[in-house]
Simulated scan of single mutants.
Amino acid sequence: MDDLTGFQRDLLYVIAGADQPSGQEVKDEVEKYYNSEINHGRLYPNLDTLVNKELVEKGQLDRRTNYYAISDKGQSSIEQRREWERQYID
């Protein structure tokens, strides 16, 4: 996970905490946290990066809507990150 940007990490966490969210649902959640609008040109290339790194799986809900789901590798990466963080926070 050390090769992800903070934005990509935030996307991964949002996806991990939801049940197969659409790109729009991910966007809405991240916009709440960032308190600003996230444009599609920023969102979708970063989601594609997570898919290409096999941290997230991408599927199709219908002809126009994709969903995203955390992969086993993505879940493991989050757990490893949290363990690393604990040594500094606890």
Rank of each mutant, 00 (worst) to 15 (best):
G6S: 12
G6I: 12
F7L: 08
F7C: 05
F7R: 06
F7G: 04
F7Q: 07
Q8A: 04
Q8K: 05
R9Y: 12
R9M: 14
D10M: 10
D10Y: 01
D10Q: 07
L11T: 08
L11W: 00
L12Q: 02
L12M: 02
Y13D: 09
Y13P: 04
Y13F: 06
V14R: 01
V14N: 03
V14M: 07
I15F: 00
I15W: 00
I15T: 09
A16Q: 14
A16I: 06
A18T: 10
A18E: 14
D19F: 15
D19G: 13
D19I: 10
Q20D: 15
Q20N: 15
Q20A: 12
Q20E: 15
Q20F: 06
P21Y: 00
P21H: 02
S22W: 02
S22F: 04
G23C: 02
G23W: 00
Q24E: 10
Q24T: 05
Q24G: 10
E25I: 03
E25D: 15
E25C: 08
V26G: 06
K27H: 03
K27I: 01
K27Q: 10
K27E: 07
D28I: 07
D28W: 04
D28T: 10
D28C: 09
E29P: 12
E29D: 15
V30T: 02
E31L: 06
K32W: 05
K32S: 13
K32L: 08
Y33G: 14
Y34M: 08
Y34T: 00
Y34R: 14
N35S: 09
N35L: 06
N35E: 15
N35V: 01
S36H: 09
S36E: 12
S36V: 06
E37L: 08
E37Y: 14
I38H: 02
N39T: 09
N39W: 07
H40Y: 11
G41L: 12
G41S: 09
R42D: 13
R42V: 09
L43K: 04
L43D: 07
Y44G: 01
Y44T: 02
P45H: 00
N46R: 05
N46D: 10
N46Y: 03
L47S: 02
L47E: 04
L47M: 04
D48C: 03
T49R: 02
T49F: 00
T49S: 03
T49D: 06
L50C: 05
L50T: 10
L50W: 01
L50A: 01
V51S: 04
V51M: 03
V51F: 04
N52F: 05
N52K: 11
K53N: 05
K53M: 05
K53R: 14
E54H: 15
E54W: 05
V56C: 01
E57F: 05
K58H: 05
G59I: 02
G59R: 09
L61F: 11
L61Y: 15
D62R: 08
D62H: 11
R63H: 09
R64S: 12
R64G: 12
T65Q: 09
N66R: 03
N66C: 07
N66I: 01
Y67Q: 14
Y68K: 04
Y68A: 03
A69Y: 13
I70S: 06
I70P: 13
I70Q: 07
